[in-house]
């Protein structure tokens, strides 16, 4: 089997969040990202953050039916991570001469901006969820993430019945919505 086919399968695995695929990608790419980041005065922690962001982008790509993997995951993900680190670098105004090699990235600047904006929105939702507090946070997670049936949620959260749990869930959802959009304005 050629390498690209193998990587396309890995990408499929990633789209399902299959742990062995994620692990394989990590083993394959993380060392070079770590080298790159620490080589440019970053810490191991920076490298880990950059890699995480890169993986999220790759994951979202794996779900995009229009995305076609044209290079190996290693090449693609490394280029994405490099770009992320470069942007962070520039933002911190530690600018040094650094050739930005985007040849492996088919994405243009516009697409990149869109991806970054998307990352920001996802982070915003995550922090809105965090500031929601309990039991709302767990209730929302149980229903929308774990897809637990309302009956089970009711008994797990000690509500008298499923309808009652449902009402609470909607109230929590409305609060989350408010928090999310508030944050956007602020």
């Amino acid at each position: 089997m050629d390498y690209l086919k193998h990587d396309i399968m890995l990408l499929r695995g990633l789209s399902r969040q299959d742990s062995s695929s994620i692990n394989a990608i990590y083993k394959d790419v993380y060392p070079s990202v770590l080298n790159m980041v620490t080589g440019f005065s970053g810490s191991a922690e920076d490298a880990s953050d950059v890699f995480q962001e890169g993986m999220i982008i790759l994951y979202e790509k794996s779900l995009d039916p229009d995305f076609e993997l044209k290079s190996l995951i290693k090449t693609y993900l490394y280029a994405v991570c490099k770009r992320i680190w470069l942007k962070k670098w520039q933002r911190d105004k530690k600018t040094e001469e650094w050739v930005d090699d985007n040849s492996q990235l088919a994405d243009n600047e516009e697409e990149w901006e869109r991806m970054m904006q998307r990352q920001e929105e996802l982070t915003r939702m995550e922090s809105a969820l965090k500031s929601l507090g309990e039991p709302c946070k767990s209730l929302i997670e149980a229903y929308y993430f774990k897809k637990m049936p309302m009956m089970e949620i009711a008994s797990a959260f000690k509500y008298t019945n499923a309808d009652n749990a449902k009402t609470q869930k909607y109230k929590c959802l409305m609060r989350l919505k408010k928090l999310f959009f508030q944050d956007k304005k602020g």
Binding site: Q17, S19, Y59, M125, Y144, F145
Partner: peptide, 15 residues
């Protein structure tokens, strides 16, 4: 958006 966030959170914890 909420469900996507959930998936990303799961991915992060796996990583």
């Amino acid at each position: 958006h909420l469900e996507d966030t959930g998936k990303i959170m799961a991915l992060k914890s796996k990583l």
